[in-house]
Design a protein around this nucleic acid. Structure first.
Length: 423
RNA sequence: GAGCCUGUAGCUCAACGGCAGAGCGCCACACUGUGGCUGUGGAUGUUGUGGGUUCGAAACCCAUCAGGCUCCCCA
Protein backbone atom coordinates (compact mmCIF):
# COMPACT_ATOMS: atom_id res chain seq x y z
CA UNK A 1 0.00 0.00 0.00
CA UNK A 2 1.27 3.42 -0.88
CA UNK A 3 2.45 5.69 1.87
CA UNK A 4 1.55 8.76 -0.10
CA UNK A 5 -2.05 9.46 0.79
CA UNK A 6 -4.76 11.15 -1.16
CA UNK A 7 -5.89 14.60 -0.14
CA UNK A 8 -8.73 14.26 2.36
CA UNK A 9 -12.16 14.18 0.77
CA UNK A 10 -10.89 13.69 -2.78
CA UNK A 11 -12.03 10.72 -4.81
CA UNK A 12 -10.24 8.11 -6.88
CA UNK A 13 -12.20 6.79 -9.81
CA UNK A 14 -11.22 3.21 -10.57
CA UNK A 15 -12.88 1.94 -13.78
CA UNK A 16 -15.91 0.71 -11.85
CA UNK A 17 -16.50 4.13 -10.24
CA UNK A 18 -15.73 5.85 -13.51
CA UNK A 19 -18.49 3.77 -15.04
CA UNK A 20 -20.94 5.07 -12.42
CA UNK A 21 -19.78 8.66 -12.96
CA UNK A 22 -20.21 8.35 -16.70
CA UNK A 23 -23.57 6.64 -16.28
CA UNK A 24 -24.81 9.66 -14.34
CA UNK A 25 -23.17 12.03 -16.82
CA UNK A 26 -24.88 10.25 -19.75
CA UNK A 27 -28.31 10.47 -18.11
CA UNK A 28 -27.73 14.12 -17.21
CA UNK A 29 -26.76 14.91 -20.78
CA UNK A 30 -29.76 13.04 -22.17
CA UNK A 31 -32.27 14.79 -19.89
CA UNK A 32 -30.73 18.20 -20.60
CA UNK A 33 -30.67 17.76 -24.34
CA UNK A 34 -34.18 16.34 -24.43
CA UNK A 35 -35.34 19.81 -23.41
CA UNK A 36 -32.97 21.62 -25.76
CA UNK A 37 -30.37 22.88 -23.27
CA UNK A 38 -26.85 23.74 -24.46
CA UNK A 39 -23.74 22.44 -22.70
CA UNK A 40 -21.30 25.01 -21.33
CA UNK A 41 -18.71 25.40 -18.58
CA UNK A 42 -16.86 28.05 -16.60
CA UNK A 43 -13.36 28.20 -15.10
CA UNK A 44 -12.49 25.73 -12.34
CA UNK A 45 -10.55 28.46 -10.53
CA UNK A 46 -12.03 31.87 -9.75
CA UNK A 47 -11.06 34.87 -7.66
CA UNK A 48 -12.53 34.88 -4.18
CA UNK A 49 -14.30 38.18 -4.96
CA UNK A 50 -16.73 36.43 -7.26
CA UNK A 51 -18.17 34.50 -4.33
CA UNK A 52 -17.77 37.21 -1.72
CA UNK A 53 -20.52 39.18 -3.46
CA UNK A 54 -23.43 36.85 -3.08
CA UNK A 55 -22.56 33.46 -1.69
CA UNK A 56 -23.02 32.89 2.00
CA UNK A 57 -20.31 33.91 4.40
CA UNK A 58 -20.02 30.33 5.61
CA UNK A 59 -19.17 29.16 2.12
CA UNK A 60 -16.50 31.74 1.41
CA UNK A 61 -14.77 31.79 4.77
CA UNK A 62 -15.00 28.19 5.91
CA UNK A 63 -15.88 25.94 3.03
CA UNK A 64 -13.78 27.10 0.13
CA UNK A 65 -10.38 25.91 -1.06
CA UNK A 66 -8.76 29.32 -1.20
CA UNK A 67 -5.08 30.07 -1.70
CA UNK A 68 -2.71 32.75 -2.91
CA UNK A 69 -1.37 32.20 -6.41
CA UNK A 70 2.21 33.09 -7.37
CA UNK A 71 1.11 36.57 -8.32
CA UNK A 72 -0.32 37.19 -4.87
CA UNK A 73 -3.97 37.02 -5.87
CA UNK A 74 -6.47 35.15 -3.73
CA UNK A 75 -8.05 32.43 -5.86
CA UNK A 76 -10.43 29.62 -5.01
CA UNK A 77 -11.42 26.28 -6.46
CA UNK A 78 -15.01 26.88 -7.48
CA UNK A 79 -17.51 25.79 -4.79
CA UNK A 80 -20.52 26.45 -7.02
CA UNK A 81 -21.27 27.49 -10.58
CA UNK A 82 -24.02 30.09 -10.36
CA UNK A 83 -21.74 33.14 -9.83
CA UNK A 84 -19.66 32.13 -12.87
CA UNK A 85 -22.89 31.74 -14.83
CA UNK A 86 -24.04 35.20 -13.77
CA UNK A 87 -20.75 36.78 -14.84
CA UNK A 88 -20.60 34.99 -18.18
CA UNK A 89 -24.19 35.95 -18.95
CA UNK A 90 -23.54 39.55 -17.93
CA UNK A 91 -20.43 39.75 -20.14
CA UNK A 92 -22.46 38.94 -23.24
CA UNK A 93 -25.84 40.02 -22.01
CA UNK A 94 -26.72 41.88 -25.20
CA UNK A 95 -25.52 39.28 -27.68
CA UNK A 96 -27.10 36.13 -26.29
CA UNK A 97 -30.28 34.63 -27.71
CA UNK A 98 -32.94 34.41 -25.05
CA UNK A 99 -34.16 32.42 -23.35
CA UNK A 100 -30.76 31.02 -22.51
CA UNK A 101 -30.99 27.33 -21.67
CA UNK A 102 -27.62 26.05 -20.43
CA UNK A 103 -26.42 22.96 -18.60
CA UNK A 104 -23.07 21.83 -17.24
CA UNK A 105 -21.51 18.84 -15.49
CA UNK A 106 -18.14 19.43 -13.88
CA UNK A 107 -15.98 19.29 -10.75
CA UNK A 108 -16.45 21.43 -7.65
CA UNK A 109 -14.67 21.66 -4.31
CA UNK A 110 -15.88 22.46 -0.83
CA UNK A 111 -13.90 22.20 2.36
CA UNK A 112 -16.40 20.18 4.39
CA UNK A 113 -16.30 17.22 6.75
CA UNK A 114 -16.39 14.19 4.44
CA UNK A 115 -19.12 11.70 5.29
CA UNK A 116 -21.71 9.61 3.54
CA UNK A 117 -23.05 11.59 0.61
CA UNK A 118 -20.55 14.37 1.05
CA UNK A 119 -16.95 14.75 -0.10
CA UNK A 120 -14.64 17.70 -0.65
CA UNK A 121 -14.44 17.05 -4.37
CA UNK A 122 -17.56 16.28 -6.33
CA UNK A 123 -19.23 16.64 -9.68
CA UNK A 124 -22.31 18.72 -10.10
CA UNK A 125 -24.98 19.05 -12.72
CA UNK A 126 -26.13 22.64 -13.13
CA UNK A 127 -28.99 23.57 -15.40
CA UNK A 128 -30.58 26.97 -15.81
CA UNK A 129 -33.00 28.95 -17.95
CA UNK A 130 -32.54 32.73 -18.05
CA UNK A 131 -34.64 35.45 -19.56
CA UNK A 132 -38.09 34.12 -18.80
CA UNK A 133 -39.97 34.76 -15.60
CA UNK A 134 -43.00 32.51 -15.38
CA UNK A 135 -44.29 29.55 -13.37
CA UNK A 136 -44.35 27.64 -16.66
CA UNK A 137 -40.60 28.11 -17.02
CA UNK A 138 -40.18 26.91 -13.41
CA UNK A 139 -42.26 23.87 -14.33
CA UNK A 140 -39.95 23.09 -17.24
CA UNK A 141 -36.91 22.93 -14.97
CA UNK A 142 -38.75 20.70 -12.52
CA UNK A 143 -39.77 18.53 -15.48
CA UNK A 144 -36.12 18.23 -16.52
CA UNK A 145 -35.31 17.02 -13.02
CA UNK A 146 -38.22 14.59 -13.01
CA UNK A 147 -37.20 13.31 -16.45
CA UNK A 148 -33.76 12.61 -15.10
CA UNK A 149 -35.16 10.73 -12.08
CA UNK A 150 -37.35 8.67 -14.36
CA UNK A 151 -34.48 7.95 -16.76
CA UNK A 152 -32.32 6.43 -14.01
CA UNK A 153 -35.20 4.25 -12.86
CA UNK A 154 -36.32 6.21 -9.79
CA UNK A 155 -40.11 6.10 -9.77
CA UNK A 156 -42.30 8.59 -7.87
CA UNK A 157 -42.61 5.92 -5.14
CA UNK A 158 -38.87 6.18 -4.71
CA UNK A 159 -38.06 9.85 -5.30
CA UNK A 160 -40.09 13.05 -5.04
CA UNK A 161 -39.57 16.72 -5.78
CA UNK A 162 -40.92 18.98 -3.04
CA UNK A 163 -41.94 22.46 -4.10
CA UNK A 164 -42.59 25.71 -2.29
CA UNK A 165 -42.65 29.41 -3.14
CA UNK A 166 -40.74 32.15 -1.40
CA UNK A 167 -43.28 34.85 -2.28
CA UNK A 168 -46.10 32.76 -0.85
CA UNK A 169 -44.18 32.24 2.36
CA UNK A 170 -43.28 35.92 2.54
CA UNK A 171 -46.91 36.94 2.35
CA UNK A 172 -47.79 34.37 5.01
CA UNK A 173 -45.00 35.69 7.22
CA UNK A 174 -46.27 39.23 6.59
CA UNK A 175 -49.71 38.17 7.74
CA UNK A 176 -48.15 36.88 10.96
CA UNK A 177 -46.35 40.16 11.44
CA UNK A 178 -42.90 38.60 11.25
CA UNK A 179 -40.45 41.37 10.43
CA UNK A 180 -38.09 41.35 7.45
CA UNK A 181 -35.05 41.18 9.74
CA UNK A 182 -36.27 37.93 11.22
CA UNK A 183 -36.86 36.20 7.89
CA UNK A 184 -33.40 34.62 7.71
CA UNK A 185 -33.72 33.26 11.25
CA UNK A 186 -37.19 31.97 10.50
CA UNK A 187 -35.90 30.34 7.34
CA UNK A 188 -33.25 28.55 9.42
CA UNK A 189 -35.92 27.58 11.91
CA UNK A 190 -38.05 26.02 9.19
CA UNK A 191 -35.07 24.13 7.75
CA UNK A 192 -34.48 22.63 11.14
CA UNK A 193 -38.01 21.46 11.79
CA UNK A 194 -37.53 17.83 10.82
CA UNK A 195 -34.20 17.61 12.61
CA UNK A 196 -35.19 18.89 16.07
CA UNK A 197 -37.51 17.64 18.75
CA UNK A 198 -40.67 19.71 18.75
CA UNK A 199 -40.16 21.14 22.25
CA UNK A 200 -36.62 22.21 21.39
CA UNK A 201 -37.85 23.60 18.11
CA UNK A 202 -40.48 25.67 19.94
CA UNK A 203 -37.84 26.99 22.33
CA UNK A 204 -35.60 27.90 19.40
CA UNK A 205 -38.51 29.73 17.77
CA UNK A 206 -39.08 31.83 20.87
CA UNK A 207 -35.34 32.39 21.17
CA UNK A 208 -35.14 34.08 17.79
CA UNK A 209 -37.88 36.42 18.93
CA UNK A 210 -41.14 34.96 17.75
CA UNK A 211 -44.22 35.44 19.92
CA UNK A 212 -46.37 32.51 21.01
CA UNK A 213 -49.04 33.47 18.47
CA UNK A 214 -46.49 33.84 15.70
CA UNK A 215 -45.04 30.44 16.53
CA UNK A 216 -48.50 28.86 16.52
CA UNK A 217 -49.29 30.58 13.23
CA UNK A 218 -46.02 29.37 11.74
CA UNK A 219 -46.86 25.78 12.70
CA UNK A 220 -50.26 26.14 11.04
CA UNK A 221 -48.59 27.31 7.83
CA UNK A 222 -46.01 24.52 7.85
CA UNK A 223 -48.70 21.92 8.39
CA UNK A 224 -50.98 23.23 5.66
CA UNK A 225 -50.32 21.22 2.50
CA UNK A 226 -53.14 22.97 0.65
CA UNK A 227 -51.50 26.34 1.10
CA UNK A 228 -50.37 26.35 -2.55
CA UNK A 229 -53.97 26.98 -3.62
CA UNK A 230 -53.58 30.52 -2.29
CA UNK A 231 -50.70 31.11 -4.71
CA UNK A 232 -51.44 31.96 -8.33
CA UNK A 233 -47.85 31.07 -9.24
CA UNK A 234 -48.05 27.62 -7.70
CA UNK A 235 -51.48 26.97 -9.18
CA UNK A 236 -50.08 27.70 -12.64
CA UNK A 237 -46.95 25.69 -11.84
CA UNK A 238 -48.94 22.56 -11.00
CA UNK A 239 -51.13 22.96 -14.07
CA UNK A 240 -48.00 23.06 -16.25
CA UNK A 241 -46.46 20.09 -14.45
CA UNK A 242 -49.58 18.08 -15.15
CA UNK A 243 -49.48 18.58 -18.91
CA UNK A 244 -45.71 18.03 -18.90
CA UNK A 245 -46.49 14.58 -17.54
CA UNK A 246 -44.44 14.78 -14.36
CA UNK A 247 -46.99 15.74 -11.73
CA UNK A 248 -46.59 12.38 -9.97
CA UNK A 249 -43.07 13.38 -9.06
CA UNK A 250 -44.00 16.70 -7.46
CA UNK A 251 -45.55 17.56 -4.11
CA UNK A 252 -46.15 20.90 -2.45
CA UNK A 253 -44.33 21.20 0.89
CA UNK A 254 -44.32 24.45 2.89
CA UNK A 255 -41.27 23.24 4.84
CA UNK A 256 -38.95 23.57 1.84
CA UNK A 257 -37.13 26.88 2.22
CA UNK A 258 -33.54 26.46 0.94
CA UNK A 259 -30.80 28.42 2.58
CA UNK A 260 -29.79 30.47 -0.39
CA UNK A 261 -30.55 34.12 -0.10
CA UNK A 262 -30.94 34.70 -3.80
CA UNK A 263 -34.04 32.61 -4.37
CA UNK A 264 -37.11 34.79 -4.88
CA UNK A 265 -39.96 32.59 -6.12
CA UNK A 266 -40.38 28.88 -6.68
CA UNK A 267 -37.98 26.67 -4.72
CA UNK A 268 -37.70 22.89 -4.93
CA UNK A 269 -35.71 19.93 -3.63
CA UNK A 270 -35.72 16.27 -4.65
CA UNK A 271 -35.40 13.52 -2.05
CA UNK A 272 -35.08 9.77 -2.01
CA UNK A 273 -38.15 8.72 -0.04
CA UNK A 274 -37.11 5.21 0.97
CA UNK A 275 -33.32 4.95 1.06
CA UNK A 276 -30.82 5.36 3.87
CA UNK A 277 -29.79 8.82 2.77
CA UNK A 278 -31.77 11.84 3.91
CA UNK A 279 -29.90 14.35 1.79
CA UNK A 280 -31.33 16.27 -1.12
CA UNK A 281 -30.69 14.73 -4.54
CA UNK A 282 -30.96 18.11 -6.21
CA UNK A 283 -32.28 21.52 -5.33
CA UNK A 284 -32.96 24.82 -6.98
CA UNK A 285 -35.40 27.58 -7.66
CA UNK A 286 -36.06 30.96 -9.20
CA UNK A 287 -33.69 33.86 -8.70
CA UNK A 288 -34.39 37.37 -9.94
CA UNK A 289 -31.46 39.55 -9.03
CA UNK A 290 -28.37 37.51 -9.59
CA UNK A 291 -26.85 39.51 -12.44
CA UNK A 292 -26.94 42.85 -10.66
CA UNK A 293 -24.06 41.78 -8.41
CA UNK A 294 -21.73 41.17 -11.34
CA UNK A 295 -22.65 44.34 -13.17
CA UNK A 296 -25.42 43.13 -15.45
CA UNK A 297 -28.93 44.34 -16.08
CA UNK A 298 -31.67 42.60 -14.09
CA UNK A 299 -32.43 39.20 -15.57
CA UNK A 300 -34.60 36.50 -14.09
CA UNK A 301 -33.60 32.87 -14.08
CA UNK A 302 -34.50 29.47 -12.75
CA UNK A 303 -32.28 26.46 -12.26
CA UNK A 304 -31.08 23.67 -10.05
CA UNK A 305 -27.96 21.74 -9.14
CA UNK A 306 -27.36 18.07 -8.44
CA UNK A 307 -24.21 16.55 -6.91
CA UNK A 308 -22.99 13.19 -8.17
CA UNK A 309 -22.32 11.71 -4.74
CA UNK A 310 -25.84 11.42 -3.30
CA UNK A 311 -27.47 10.23 -6.51
CA UNK A 312 -24.63 7.71 -6.98
CA UNK A 313 -25.23 6.18 -3.55
CA UNK A 314 -28.98 6.06 -4.11
CA UNK A 315 -28.64 4.34 -7.48
CA UNK A 316 -26.25 1.80 -6.03
CA UNK A 317 -28.43 1.05 -3.02
CA UNK A 318 -31.53 0.77 -5.19
CA UNK A 319 -29.76 -1.64 -7.54
CA UNK A 320 -30.51 0.59 -10.50
CA UNK A 321 -27.11 0.48 -12.12
CA UNK A 322 -26.57 -1.58 -15.27
CA UNK A 323 -23.95 -4.30 -14.97
CA UNK A 324 -20.43 -2.99 -15.20
CA UNK A 325 -18.64 -4.18 -18.32
CA UNK A 326 -14.94 -4.17 -17.49
CA UNK A 327 -13.71 -4.36 -21.07
CA UNK A 328 -14.89 -1.98 -23.77
CA UNK A 329 -13.89 -4.74 -26.17
CA UNK A 330 -16.12 -7.79 -26.29
CA UNK A 331 -13.70 -9.77 -28.43
CA UNK A 332 -10.46 -11.38 -27.28
CA UNK A 333 -7.86 -12.64 -29.74
CA UNK A 334 -5.66 -15.18 -27.99
CA UNK A 335 -1.96 -15.66 -28.66
CA UNK A 336 -1.33 -19.35 -29.20
CA UNK A 337 2.44 -19.41 -29.03
CA UNK A 338 5.47 -17.31 -29.79
CA UNK A 339 5.59 -18.10 -33.52
CA UNK A 340 1.88 -17.21 -33.96
CA UNK A 341 2.11 -14.12 -31.76
CA UNK A 342 2.23 -11.62 -34.62
CA UNK A 343 -0.37 -13.59 -36.54
CA UNK A 344 -2.79 -12.86 -33.70
CA UNK A 345 -1.83 -9.20 -33.79
CA UNK A 346 -2.48 -9.19 -37.53
CA UNK A 347 -5.92 -10.78 -37.05
CA UNK A 348 -6.81 -8.29 -34.32
CA UNK A 349 -5.90 -5.41 -36.62
CA UNK A 350 -8.09 -6.87 -39.39
CA UNK A 351 -11.03 -7.09 -37.02
CA UNK A 352 -10.54 -3.50 -35.84
CA UNK A 353 -10.54 -2.32 -39.46
CA UNK A 354 -13.89 -4.10 -39.66
CA UNK A 355 -15.19 -1.88 -36.88
CA UNK A 356 -14.91 -4.25 -33.93
CA UNK A 357 -13.45 -3.42 -30.53
CA UNK A 358 -10.79 -6.06 -30.08
CA UNK A 359 -8.42 -6.84 -27.25
CA UNK A 360 -5.47 -9.07 -28.10
CA UNK A 361 -3.69 -10.94 -25.32
CA UNK A 362 -0.35 -9.19 -25.10
CA UNK A 363 1.90 -12.27 -25.01
CA UNK A 364 1.87 -16.02 -25.46
CA UNK A 365 0.45 -17.68 -22.36
CA UNK A 366 -1.35 -20.89 -21.56
CA UNK A 367 -4.76 -20.84 -23.16
CA UNK A 368 -6.62 -21.50 -19.89
CA UNK A 369 -5.06 -18.36 -18.52
CA UNK A 370 -6.14 -16.36 -21.55
CA UNK A 371 -9.70 -17.67 -21.38
CA UNK A 372 -9.90 -16.94 -17.66
CA UNK A 373 -8.82 -13.42 -18.42
CA UNK A 374 -11.63 -13.13 -21.00
CA UNK A 375 -14.10 -14.36 -18.35
CA UNK A 376 -13.00 -11.86 -15.76
CA UNK A 377 -13.27 -9.08 -18.27
CA UNK A 378 -16.76 -10.38 -19.13
CA UNK A 379 -15.91 -10.65 -22.81
CA UNK A 380 -18.29 -12.37 -25.21
CA UNK A 381 -16.12 -13.89 -27.92
CA UNK A 382 -12.64 -15.43 -28.14
CA UNK A 383 -10.80 -15.97 -31.39
CA UNK A 384 -7.88 -18.38 -31.58
CA UNK A 385 -5.44 -19.06 -34.40
CA UNK A 386 -3.45 -22.19 -33.65
CA UNK A 387 -1.04 -24.06 -35.95
CA UNK A 388 -3.89 -26.02 -37.61
CA UNK A 389 -5.92 -22.91 -38.40
CA UNK A 390 -2.91 -20.85 -39.48
CA UNK A 391 -1.91 -23.48 -42.00
CA UNK A 392 -5.33 -23.47 -43.67
CA UNK A 393 -6.20 -19.79 -43.37
CA UNK A 394 -8.83 -20.40 -40.70
CA UNK A 395 -9.66 -19.14 -37.20
CA UNK A 396 -11.56 -20.63 -34.26
CA UNK A 397 -14.39 -18.38 -33.07
CA UNK A 398 -15.76 -19.27 -29.65
CA UNK A 399 -18.95 -18.00 -28.09
CA UNK A 400 -17.94 -17.55 -24.47
CA UNK A 401 -21.45 -17.48 -23.09
CA UNK A 402 -22.35 -21.01 -24.26
CA UNK A 403 -18.97 -22.54 -25.10
CA UNK A 404 -19.74 -23.27 -28.74
CA UNK A 405 -16.82 -22.94 -31.09
CA UNK A 406 -16.79 -22.94 -34.85
CA UNK A 407 -13.91 -22.89 -37.32
CA UNK A 408 -14.34 -20.35 -40.11
CA UNK A 409 -12.29 -18.81 -42.89
CA UNK A 410 -10.26 -15.77 -41.95
CA UNK A 411 -12.37 -13.51 -44.19
CA UNK A 412 -15.55 -14.64 -42.41
CA UNK A 413 -14.34 -14.06 -38.84
CA UNK A 414 -15.59 -10.49 -38.49
CA UNK A 415 -19.08 -11.35 -39.69
CA UNK A 416 -19.21 -14.42 -37.49
CA UNK A 417 -18.30 -12.33 -34.45
CA UNK A 418 -20.89 -9.73 -35.34
CA UNK A 419 -23.57 -12.42 -35.48
CA UNK A 420 -22.61 -13.62 -32.00
CA UNK A 421 -22.57 -10.10 -30.55
CA UNK A 422 -25.96 -9.26 -31.99
CA UNK A 423 -27.59 -12.47 -30.76
C1' G B 1 -15.19 23.83 14.64
C1' A B 2 -17.71 19.99 18.60
C1' G B 3 -19.41 14.97 20.38
C1' C B 4 -19.67 9.60 19.73
C1' C B 5 -18.18 4.97 17.05
C1' U B 6 -14.66 2.25 13.97
C1' G B 7 -9.60 0.87 11.91
C1' U B 8 -6.68 -6.88 11.92
C1' A B 9 -4.57 -10.58 4.83
C1' G B 10 -6.65 -7.80 -1.66
C1' C B 11 -12.22 -7.90 0.36
C1' U B 12 -15.79 -9.17 4.54
C1' C B 13 -14.85 -10.17 9.37
C1' A B 14 -13.08 -13.42 13.94
C1' A B 15 -9.64 -13.62 17.95
C1' C B 16 -11.03 -9.06 23.17
C1' G B 17 -4.28 -9.35 28.00
C1' G B 18 -1.25 -15.31 26.57
C1' C B 19 1.19 -19.14 19.44
C1' A B 20 -2.91 -13.61 14.45
C1' G B 21 -7.25 -16.94 12.14
C1' A B 22 -11.70 -18.09 8.78
C1' G B 23 -14.61 -17.34 4.35
C1' C B 24 -14.25 -15.17 -0.32
C1' G B 25 -10.62 -13.63 -3.79
C1' C B 26 -5.54 -14.55 -5.75
C1' C B 27 -1.55 -18.07 -7.67
C1' A B 28 -0.10 -23.16 -9.08
C1' C B 29 -1.41 -28.09 -10.34
C1' A B 30 -5.12 -32.06 -11.76
C1' C B 31 -6.33 -30.18 -17.41
C1' U B 32 1.14 -29.17 -21.80
C1' G B 33 -5.32 -26.76 -28.26
C1' U B 34 -9.74 -23.65 -24.69
C1' G B 35 -12.79 -20.30 -19.57
C1' G B 36 -17.12 -20.79 -15.97
C1' C B 37 -17.82 -26.23 -12.15
C1' U B 38 -14.94 -29.44 -8.86
C1' G B 39 -10.65 -31.12 -6.11
C1' U B 40 -5.63 -30.61 -4.07
C1' G B 41 -1.75 -27.52 -2.69
C1' G B 42 0.42 -22.47 -2.00
C1' A B 43 1.46 -17.20 -1.03
C1' U B 44 -0.06 -12.84 1.70
C1' G B 45 0.09 -9.11 7.79
C1' U B 46 5.39 -4.14 11.01
C1' U B 47 -3.07 -5.71 13.66
C1' G B 48 -3.69 2.55 10.37
C1' U B 49 0.71 5.37 12.50
C1' G B 50 3.68 7.03 16.90
C1' G B 51 4.34 6.67 22.00
C1' G B 52 2.96 4.60 26.98
C1' U B 53 1.19 0.69 30.76
C1' U B 54 2.50 -4.69 31.30
C1' C B 55 6.53 -10.50 32.32
C1' G B 56 3.50 -10.29 27.84
C1' A B 57 -0.70 -5.60 23.80
C1' A B 58 -4.44 -6.63 17.91
C1' A B 59 -6.90 -5.96 22.76
C1' C B 60 -5.80 -1.24 28.03
C1' C B 61 -4.14 4.38 28.06
C1' C B 62 -2.49 8.95 25.26
C1' A B 63 -1.59 11.32 20.69
C1' U B 64 -2.15 11.36 15.49
C1' C B 65 -4.15 9.98 10.66
C1' A B 66 -8.27 7.97 7.99
C1' G B 67 -13.45 6.50 7.66
C1' G B 68 -18.60 6.47 9.63
C1' C B 69 -22.85 8.72 12.51
C1' U B 70 -24.62 13.30 14.70
C1' C B 71 -24.33 18.70 15.60
C1' C B 72 -22.94 22.86 12.46
C1' C B 73 -23.48 23.97 7.33
C1' C B 74 -25.65 22.77 2.76
C1' A B 75 -24.36 28.46 -1.32
Amino acid sequence: MSKVKTVKGTREFYPEQMFLRNFIFDKVRAASQMFGYQEWDGPFIETIDLYAAKSGEELVKKQSFTFEDRGGELVTLRPELTPSLARMIAEKQNELTYPVRWWSFGPFWRYEQPQKGRSREFFQWNIDMLGVNSPEADAELIAVGATFLRSVGLSPERALIYVNNRRLMDSEFDALGISQEKRLDVSNLVDRRTKMESTKWDAYGLEIGLSQTQLAGLKDILGNFDLWKKSDELTRLFAALEVLGVKDYVKFDPNIMRGLLYYTGTVFEAFDTSGSLKRAIFGGGRYDNLLADVGGQPLSGVGFAMGDVVIGIILQEAGLLPEFEPSPAQVLVTVFNESLWLESYRLAAELRINGLNVLVFPEPAKLPKQFKFADKMKMKVAVTVGPDEAEKGLAAVKNLSNGNQIIVKREAVANEIRKLLEA
